[in-house]
């Protein structure tokens, strides 16, 4: 019985609660109660969909990673914009990226990062979660794409999920 009243994912509950306070018109008694109910009910209902939790995650490395990604998003947009306007044809390529990460959450973070950063969109993960299929918009050298991603994004994530 107590099990059903607990918060299986405290972080998710906290985020839901705070978001609900922002969404409602000022903090009041009603929004606090409703926020608590939502923070309890949504993790309970969606529990079956979540992958297993990482055993250990270094949260404090996240801001640095996010800052790097944000900077790269701006650069990426300028590069893609320049390519879209220029009359020359792009040289697209599908690249198979061998993953070193193992945790599903880490892989999905990496895939999202790849989609938002210069010239690449992640298209698929192989069934055994060892390969990531990436579509690069404009590249001459596949190895270069792989090396950049490994150095810039996968290493920090490996640190985080070690």
């Amino acid at each position: 019985m107590l099990d059903r009243l607990s918060f299986p994912q405290p972080w998710l509950s906290l985020i839901l609660f705070v978001t609900w306070q922002f969404l409602s018109d000022g903090i009041s008694g009603g929004s606090l109660v409703l926020g608590l109910i939502l923070a309890w009910a949504i993790p309970q209902m969606t529990q079956g969909f979540w992958p297993e939790r990482p055993s250990f995650m270094r949260f404090w490395l996240m801001p640095k990673y996010l800052a790097r990604v944000l900077k790269d998003i701006v650069i990426a947009s300028f590069q893609v914009a320049a390519l879209i306007i220029s009359p020359r044809k792009p040289r697209p390529a599908f690249v198979c990226y061998p993953l070193e990460l193992e945790h599903p959450l880490a892989i999905s973070i990496l895939a999202s990062t790849i989609s938002l950063t210069p010239g690449t969109v992640s298209a698929d993960v192989s069934d055994d979660q060892r390969l990531l299929l990436i579509h690069a918009l404009d590249t001459e050298n596949e190895q270069e794409v792989i090396d950049t991603i490994r150095k810039r994004y996968e290493q920090p994530l490996l640190e985080m999920f070690k």
Binding site: V74, S77, P92, V121, L137
Partner: peptide
């Protein structure tokens, strides 16, 4: 020219 290249414009430029 093709779908996969078109995917790049909206995901990056439009979002930013």
């Amino acid at each position: 020219p093709d779908f996969f290249t078109r995917l790049h414009g909206p995901t990056k430029a439009t979002t930013l």
